[in-house]
Amino acid sequence: MFRMLKDSMEYLPIILPLLTLQLVLMITALIHLFKHPNVRRGNKVVWVIVVVFVNIFGPILYFLIGRGED
């Protein structure tokens, strides 16, 4: 346990930015999703689930094929 804690401290400088980027990606997609009245494919609920639960590729998929026109 102690070793693991020490290890994770060691990896923190790389994991923290990584998680931040994923969070930025997710939140940007969610903000876009809530600000726009409709999506190109499927419905909003499905996209919220995809964006939140599919790591990295969920938000990207939303921006590429799900995003409604401005």
Binding site: L18, Q22, V24, L25, I56, I60, F63, L64, R67, D70
Partner: peptide, 17 residues
Amino acid sequence: RSYKIFIFLILFAILGM
């Protein structure tokens, strides 16, 4: 506007990490 710059930068930064 199509968020491609945003996707590119974040994705390649993630790949880099």
